[in-house]
Design a protein around this nucleic acid. Structure first.
Lengths: 130, 130
DNA sequence: TGCTATGGTTCAGGACTTACGAACAATTGA
DNA sequence: TCAATTGTTCGTAAGTCCTGAACCATAGCA
């Protein structure tokens, strides 16, 4: 089992952050971690918003968040404790994380009555041009 | 040639925006469009930050930005004029676009002396665990 | 010392996405 | 009508992502 890799703050990129958070499951996980006061263990997310996530997939999602520099993962016994690196990122990219998390929350809030939209809605209405 | 598809504001998603902007070429293009007062034509971006972009690739990048709801594309004669949809998005996700564009600018500014880092830097320094 | 349970990781495959050259389409101007 | 310009589409090769199966590491208990 190879050691956990965390980029240093200076190696964190905007593209990396955006890519990591462009997945609906990952933003949901990250938003939860950001919103909670204590660190969260991976298995807490075996279901995300009423969908079961296979544990191999979950492991990959955590790896993605970790290597984008968004979370700090620490093994404690058999568990993996995850906390956000918001404070560090805030110094490098002020407001970025909080704005994204807020936008994500707004999107969730605006999703009423069983409107189960999940991923990059290819559902365009306006068509312009020839 | 099929008609251009633009999502309505309500169909724009955070995930879609983040995914579209998680590509270094696309953020660069988008930041340029946001920063300019008049609309930009696609061929203006045949080189982005000193790299040539093949035009088929460029076309796909514009499609991605358009279908994420980030830009409005209008054909005028043989050219395609692109402008940002910031104002609309601002209503739905306040601060999101400006914060991302600003973070992107900071990252560029911090990239001195030939440090050609481009994509999700897999260059980790800190290793924890075990 | 085993044995077992628990929590995560790795591997391998198939599915899906992306990049880009070549061919094509639409418009303009001569 | 022809050529030039600007952008799109198609096909394929390369890359990324998802996930079940197998594995590893630790803890607790007999």
């Amino acid at each position: 089992m190879r050691p956990l890799l965390h980029p240093s703050v200076d190696d964190i990129t905007v593209e990396g952050i955006l890519h990591a958070l462009s997945d609906p499951v990952r933003v949901a996980i990250f938003a939860d971690i950001v919103g909670s006061t204590c660190s969260q263990i991976c298995s807490h997310f075996l279901t995300v918003r009423d969908r079961p996530i296979p544990k191999s997939t979950l492991s990959q999602h955590f790896k993605a968040l970790r290597e984008a520099g968004l979370i700090l993962s620490e093994r404690r016994g058999v568990e993996m404790h995850n906390s956000s690196r918001c404070a560090e990122i805030e110094v490098r990219f002020p407001g970025l994380i909080s704005t994204i998390v807020k936008a994500h929350a707004m999107q969730l809030a605006g999703r009423h009555h069983g409107d189960k939209r999940t991923r990059k809605a290819p559902d365009p209405r306006i068509a312009r041009g020839r």
